[in-house]
Design a protein around this nucleic acid. Sequence first.
DNA 1: ACTTATGTGAGACATAGTGTACCATATGTT
DNA 2: AACATATGGTACACTATGTCTCACATAAGT
Lengths: 194, 194
Amino acid sequence: MKNSDKSTNPQVRRTHDLMLDAAGSLLSLGGPEAVTHLRVAAEAGVARATVYRHWPNRADILLDLLRRGANLDLVPPAADLAIEERVAGVLRGFAGALNGQSGQTLSAMIGLAEWDDDVFAALERMTQFGPKMLRNVLAACVEAGELVADTDLDLLADRLIGPLYLRRLLYHDEITDTYVEALVAATLVPQVPI
Amino acid sequence: MKNSDKSTNPQVRRTHDLMLDAAGSLLSLGGPEAVTHLRVAAEAGVARATVYRHWPNRADILLDLLRRGANLDLVPPAADLAIEERVAGVLRGFAGALNGQSGQTLSAMIGLAEWDDDVFAALERMTQFGPKMLRNVLAACVEAGELVADTDLDLLADRLIGPLYLRRLLYHDEITDTYVEALVAATLVPQVPI
DNA sequence: ACTTATGTGAGACATAGTGTACCATATGTT
DNA sequence: AACATATGGTACACTATGTCTCACATAAGT
């Protein structure tokens, strides 16, 4: 087994996926505290030592879970829609992810990221994906003259995304389509193109 | 010691404060995971059993820490200022709390609140304080005709507060006065009174 | 098919933390 | 001074961490 690539070895992939599934169900049932090497091993039907071999500590397990959950298949909206519809489309996709398990995982990570730089780096990668797409859409709107040229895109993206996080993480309210549309309507006030 | 009120007994207050101080420093150094009964006892120079007598589990310790940190002395702004200044004043006070230890404690609680209803209830009490004051200020603005009468106050409050949380909790950026003012300027667009 | 490299299973071990129980002692209250 | 209560200290059973060792299973190269 020279030149063994851990990610292509079927045995490794098998146990890895088994354990990650177990960890995922433990997380969504009991929160980050419930994700222990012992329970993951028991749940996955795997030796405890094997869990330690894949992830030295709890944060690394959660990190992997986060990476897996980060596959939010956010598709950019069609370019021929009105600006409000394009922005709302991105935000709806984003809201869907937040409403689901990604939101739960995110909740768990925020506390860890405050004291663990590796977790924070992973969190950044995950959370920058949505805003980046949004900023691209907004930049296209500026190009098309649908937004004034001196628009602060970063701030505008924050103003569109911030309330969604607020609702999900702090209020524990589901982000409805109605909310997204009201938010977009209030935020994207009609502006006179230059 | 008939009719003993635990909160007035000096011995109880002393040990309680000692332990809470210890817990606070453990939290800010190592995060929620570092706040164990064992370490709090050691750090406070107190018997381990005493820590358990005051708080049966970790969440209760953090809850008390949260309550103590919730004493954000947010003073309502003077009523004779311009609307932008009043709103910005509230938000600056809020941002100050988020930038400090309250933000750190909040980070720790969000993950716990996702799976612990008691923690969520406490989190709600803490996080509703700021928005409530903001809504009061905004309601006064509507009364004074500075905002149109059909303004959705809850949504507007979310739009003002959401970006602050986003910056602090997800981006780990300090919330500067400049940011607050840009946010207020962008959000409170000039409106025609009815 | 044979050999080799590597991953896994199973168990031991020391350590940290949880949660409860007990009793002697210290501290407040009356 | 007498009483009530909180604390200190210790023991116990349990869960979890993190490391280690060795036999066994699995995958890859020849």
